[in-house]
Design a binder for these strands. Structure first.
Lengths: 206, 206, 206, 206
DNA sequence: CTTTAACCGAGACGGTACGTCGTGTCTTAAC
DNA sequence: GTTAAGACACGACGTACCGTCTCGGTTAAAG
């Protein structure tokens, strides 16, 4: 992760020492049941109308168990949604920076379409009033796309594809912005729109 | 309003006949008190934590009176926020299309900064799970900016400032997108960022 | 009306002078519509669930009109119910005091059976927490039965049918009490019960 | 409990198995606080004006807790009022049936006098429009008096004090009726009235 | 092989806010 | 001056969830 790519990030310290603790270990079954119940419920209701109580009931789990492992509803939803294979962001190594950016835009467009797209919009909506939730959304989902684009743009600048005086951060905003703008303003991102937008954006970078 | 500018719009009919009604007329005092109370409360709490009950109490008004005139919380907030003078969008007639777009971006950037910006973000967040609320947000706030940009871009295409093969709708998304993206991802729009972004976007249009 | 018969009564002054007043006169049509609407609504709902608002709507009348002429809901209901022919209390002149009392009991038993009986019970229920309403109930309904019984008992004492040392007031309570007790405890007064009770009560008076 | 005494009764099954339940157990402190608050509030307001909300506030308890354990306001009030020691109905074993009946009448007269009497009247009033509430009133308060009188009358018939052809049910109505009639018609039961009525009623039974 | 400590389900708890209904009062224009 | 219409401040309803708590019971490592 290079410098310009980091400005969204905050918590750099990771606290992952395993440290065997005594006592009954966390139930993986419960965890899976909770995330699965959340996903199922989200096919019928919005994030805002989803309640912890409903998740607990559907998952056959005590409310306490949910509160023990997640700080709030948004965290549970983020966990449930973004752990799905459809949301991985491993892209094939591109022939050029432009190709890489095109691939990233298309991938993102597809991930943010349909029911999943609506749910991401709702998560982002929920996060507008809760800084913690916004942080989680950024760390779990956004940062990765940001970093990828950052690397590609830097590479493009280095190999002459893009203008050398291009401000990477601004460029990323210009690429991600329109996609999320369409998402939150309720305008779907079909393939035609994606293609048209990609053309325009790549022109911008040159 | 030209064709391409209208795709966000829906309710074109206006129903403004005065039509003498029997019964006690609506109290303008109550209306003012409600909007004022809403604004005051929003300086201390988020839209999501704001409750109709609190507004009613602060305004010295029955809850019913609020529900009689607004369908939901978001409508009240939209009314309260966007009726403020700071949110008018009357721009000086520009020397060129580029100037006009620059002015619109700067105006919008300023309107979406600070406390007001956060509130708009929260409204937009609230609207993600309520199509009606989204509609209201678009009709009251977004449409106007959309239309203005549309006219400017069309004019720019006509007078040779911008590329003739530019797709107006895509162009608007590329202009508004980054601004709203920064808003909802929690990155403020200071003057430097605004200027940098404007430069990049105007280059895109040419 | 003799002395002992009056102890339930209070407002002896009647204020019935016609006194032509200027302005639009009271609408008899509205009055009739209100009472009729009340009766109709009472066939489907209880007195407690009946609302002034519903009466006004059904009668096609402003709420104000109801409030202008009746002090509270119970008054309207009392007016609506007891003005029905089924509730008159004109009894044939009896051959004996016993016959008269028997006739009064039977008449009352019949008036307090079925739907009408339930409504009277509900009125009486409503009146338990509102002294004014209780007063109205007594004056409009109860007093008349009380007076009739009083006269009959006094006559019976005079002509030797009943014990001379009988306390009239107590006797009336003993006659009316069981009838109303069955009403409010939800036990219907069929003909068999009425007959059996009448026999026992007449024995008591002798 | 003999046959004739049972006609007011319905729910004969008792469901008293302790049956270990999971989850947090009911808070006895809350229960006590609710009933105490109810009693206190009833000294200043009528049953009909008493609100669940006020009870909850005064008791420092959530409304849900009340609704969890009582189906409606009347049930709470019945519980609060009739659990008071003043409302027990344990009578000394009488020398004769007449003595027993006299004692029962006097006890009842005293219980239904003063503030407590008004509250009982209000409960009974409330119950006129709610069959469930009436059921509760009967089961909690009335049935016991009914049964006691039934036993006494049957005993009196067996030992020659009362007429053998006396219908027990009718006799009970004639005893309880006047007492409740005076209660609901707003005529207090002082000692003189009680004595006079007892004399008359005992004569009736013979 | 028992203790200990954290986990788990169930569900009661004190609260807050919901959106609705009805109260009794008021304000208007029509009659 | 009365009426129908209907807006108003207010208070309570019964419900849904919140996040916390308190039970009885489990599960596994530590003593």
């Amino acid at each position: 992760m290079n410098q310009s790519a980091r400005h969204l990030s905050e918590n750099d310290m990771e606290n992952d020492e395993p440290q065997k603790k005594s006592g009954r270990p966390r139930s993986e079954a419960s965890k899976r049941a909770i995330l699965e119940a959340t996903r199922r419920l989200l096919t019928h209701t919005s994030v805002q109308k989803l309640s912890i109580e409903a998740i607990a009931k559907k998952a056959g789990v005590g409310k306490t168990t949910i509160y023990r492992w997640w700080p709030n509803k948004t965290s549970v939803v983020v966990d449930a949604i973004f752990s799905q294979p459809a949301f991985n962001n491993i892209l094939p190594s591109p022939n050029s920076a432009s190709d890489g950016i095109r691939a990233q835009i298309e991938r993102l467009g597809r991930q943010l379409s349909g029911k999943n797209g609506r749910t991401v919009a709702e998560i982002l909506g929920e996060a507008q009033a809760e800084p913690d939730a916004l942080r989680i959304f950024i760390d779990t989902f956004l940062q990765d796309r940001y970093n990828t684009l950052s690397s590609l743009i830097e590479a493009g600048k280095r190999n002459g594809e893009f203008a050398v005086d291009l401000d990477t951060e601004t460029a990323i905003d210009v690429i991600l912005g329109p996609i999320f703008f369409r998402l939150i303003s309720g305008q779907e991102m079909d393939d035609v729109v994606t293609h048209q937008m990609t053309q325009l954006l790549l022109k911008t970078l040159r």
